[in-house]
Design a protein around this nucleic acid. Structure first.
Length: 278
DNA sequence: AAACGCGTCAACCGCCGTTCC
DNA sequence: TGGAACGGCGGTTGACGCGTT
């Protein structure tokens, strides 16, 4: 048997996080940055295992997380990417930087699975058999499959974008892929406001119940900007946004400019990969 | 008003890959 | 070079809220 799970330690708290714990975690990460999760419980005094801290941060407290309903566009993209990549939620989430893999997974399991079943696409079973089985292939084949994956992701993205009816969205969104990949300040605000409220409540010494889930309102007494700089959001968003914007334009340019050739390439040159994909 | 069923989602579990010593 | 430690991922669970009977 392997070593015991990290979270099996005695006295480690489980279950929902309290606002106070969130504050402690956020404050620590604000100071030290995410990473070295092993040290987090030790240094903060949190009676949580490192995994739990990491999960809480990445799935809930991390700035830039968009909560609430998925847009049609996001939904379409998820469906496409799921069909393409299978249940590789982290990979899918990388195309939706505002959503966590957990959110996407939950949304798929609770909404989209049913929706697709209703539509009778049989997508679930179909995609399962189409999932690339990278683990059983050689490195060269894996690289080739990855290239195919990237190409198909490009197609999926451009399809999802082209399917979007401009009536559904404001012009600025409908006409540009920015809607997908450029994280807007307001998006960050929804998350940072939560944290700011937490901090606010904490500083007042009487955090109100439910502050962590308080909905963002225009009446927020605290601007998100200070927090954004506090968390290094500008830097971190730049990190997130720039590659994604580049990726976005690359995806779109490539798919528009060389789509046909690439398709031909795929048809002629990816046989070895196809047998793993389909 | 109470019981029940269902949907949602935060959090946990276990496995695997990577890194470090 | 091998094993331990750690981080990340996907699957699963359970608490909670809401609607229906």
């Amino acid at each position: 048997m392997g070593r015991p799970p990290l979270c099996d330690q005695d006295g480690v708290k489980k279950g929902p996080w309290t606002p106070e714990e969130d504050i402690v975690l956020v404050s620590y990460i604000q100071e030290h940055g995410p990473g070295n999760w092993k040290a987090v419980p030790t240094n903060t005094g949190l009676i949580r295992c490192s995994k739990s801290c990491r999960l809480r941060w990445t799935n809930y407290l991390r700035p830039g997380i968009k909560r609430g309903n998925f847009t049609d566009q996001e939904e379409k993209l998820i469906i496409h990417l799921q069909a393409l990549l299978g249940n590789r939620w982290a990979a899918i989430a990388s195309y939706l930087p505002e959503r966590t893999d957990n959110d996407i997974k939950n949304y798929w399991n609770t909404h989209l699975k049913k929706k697709l079943r209703k539509l009778g696409t049989g997508n679930d079973r179909q995609t399962r058999s189409r999932q690339p089985s990278y683990r059983s292939i050689s490195k060269g084949q894996w690289e080739r499959c990855l290239q195919t994956d990237i190409h198909m992701a490009k197609r999926a993205l451009s399809e999802a974008l082209s399917m979007e009816n401009s009536d559904d969205l404001p012009d600025s969104m409908a006409s540009s892929a920015e809607y997908n990949f450029n994280i807007k300040p307001s998006t960050y605000a929804s998350s940072t406001e939560n944290i700011s409220r937490l901090l606010e409540g904490w500083l007042r010494g009487s955090p109100k119940p439910g502050v962590a889930s308080a909905s963002s309102t225009s009446g927020s007494s605290m601007s998100p900007e200070p927090l954004e700089s506090m968390f290094g959001i500008n830097e971190s968003t730049a990190e997130t946004r720039t590659p994604l914007s580049l990726l976005e334009s690359w995806l779109l340019d490539e798919s528009v400019g060389h789509g046909q050739e690439s398709l031909l390439d795929m048809a002629t040159g990816d046989d070895a990969c196809d047998q793993f994909l389909f």
